[in-house]
Amino acid sequence: MIDIKNLTMVYGGRAVLDNLDLKLEEGQIIGLLGENGSGKTTLLRILAGLERNYKGDVKIKGENPGGLTNSLISYQPDHLAIDDNLKIVEIVDLYRKFYEDFQNEKFYDLLDNFNVSKDLKMKECSKGMRDKVQIALTLSRKAKIYLLDEPISGVDPKSRKIVIDTIIDNFDYQGILLISTHLISAVENILDRAIFLDKGKIIINQSADEIREDKGMTIEEYFVEVM
């Protein structure tokens, strides 16, 4: 479903992604794991069609990112660029206009599960509440590929299990869910595959079960050892 060859992206003379190769098939929850600045966000933005100034070949179901692939992908950025004065219900109206596959009822069910009021303005939401709104918006689209960039970075530890369970419950295994995070311990139990990214290079791409069985470690322990 995703096929990347020789992908390089340079910012300010530095290769944020460095000759990266990656193939991903459907039916997986994949952790894109790395420290801040490792290239995780840039890779997701390229897949979402938001970055075009790259070298190499990126295909999503045989198409270049953007245009035809936009209907396949639901992307949650690490920061939702939207007017803080808008109420959540008004943001939902925007999503319904932009995305034909947006499921209104599902969004409000998810929001209730997260215990966030739909009548709040975004400026009245904490960082954790904003993250929950963004996750609900992203998962409420009927997409084939879900890209979540640091979805739980602002969520308190007590609420993380609810968020993770919600992600699992709403993932269709006919697609791909790619989660970028540095909070490995919070997501490792749901991962089918782990990709370690460091300085724009993939240094590990392995199934989660293989890591646990072959290395006798958790994914987080293995990540620390490799790094």
Rank of each mutant, 00 (worst) to 15 (best):
K5S: 14
N6A: 15
V10L: 07
G12L: 02
G12N: 14
G13W: 11
A15Q: 12
D18H: 11
N19I: 07
N19C: 12
L20P: 04
K23L: 09
E26M: 01
Q28S: 11
I30W: 00
L33D: 00
T42R: 03
A48P: 08
G49A: 02
L50P: 01
E51T: 14
K55P: 00
K55T: 12
G56Y: 09
G56C: 07
K59W: 04
K59I: 06
I60M: 07
I60C: 11
G62T: 13
N64L: 10
P65R: 07
N70K: 13
Y75G: 05
Q76S: 06
K87P: 05
I88G: 03
V89M: 09
D93Y: 04
L94V: 14
K97C: 09
K106L: 14
F107R: 11
D109Y: 04
L111A: 03
D112N: 15
D112T: 12
F114M: 13
L120T: 00
C125F: 03
S126V: 12
M129L: 12
L137E: 11
K142Q: 15
S153C: 00
V155L: 10
D156A: 12
P157T: 07
Y173N: 14
G175E: 06
I176W: 00
I179H: 06
I179S: 00
S185E: 14
I190H: 01
R193V: 05
L197Y: 00
K199F: 07
G200K: 07
N205P: 06
K215Y: 15
G216D: 04
M217T: 04
T218P: 04
I219G: 00
E220K: 03
E221R: 03
E225M: 14
